[in-house]
Amino acid sequence: MKFIKDKRSELLNTSKDFYREVLKGSDLLHGCINDLIDGKLNKNKLEEVIQCEHKADQAKEKYINILYKGKRSLPFLVEDRYRLIKYLDIVSDNSEDLAHGLIVYPFKLFDDIKADMKIINDLYQESIESLVEMVNLMEMDFKTAYQKSFHIETLKRSAREAKYKILGVLYQKPKEKSLRVYLTSKICIKVYDMIVRAEEISDYLRSLIVKYPSK
């Protein structure tokens, strides 16, 4: 009995380590994008985002090992937990990818997109925070987690608006260097894609909330 409890708490503690690194990484990346907006991008901070992803990877591996250790009386729960951590890992990977991109980004942001860039950046941070909160709620409170998923959907809609505003401005710059326009739009699209990913994961979690009582 004690062993079963230990295994469960070990699993939960490891998942918390993983979520912490994902959140820390997204917070740092949020800060880095704000720095980019302010024109003072700190490359050391971007390295920290990459480090967070590596730590999250280690926590993920540990989590998977614990998850598949021993007998599985609820295989569907094990599989769903596995999928969940894999999906969150993709979000973390995308953060790392963007951090790498920002390290080599050679330009400054256009002034006329800074306000919308700030909006989409804040939405990114909020959606990742909400997603991690929702994942945590899945353990103990389906109802609140269900409500949370709609909030993430709203964030995605707002992010889409901001994205197209930014792209609209960028596409009206035929005289600017095409590489600058292209790379800047890439940053915006990558940030938006992470919000979309968060929304997709929240959708998946919502389907689990509907599925579980019928099991």
């Binding site: 469960r8 609820l74 729960l77 937990r81 709620l137 899945m138 353990e139 103990m140 409170d141 389906f142 109802k143 987690a145 579980y212 009582p213 019928s214 099991k215």
Partner: peptide, 12 residues
Amino acid sequence: KIKHLNGFQSLE
């Protein structure tokens, strides 16, 4: 379950 199930831990 629909009425009372509240999270993975309660299911476990």
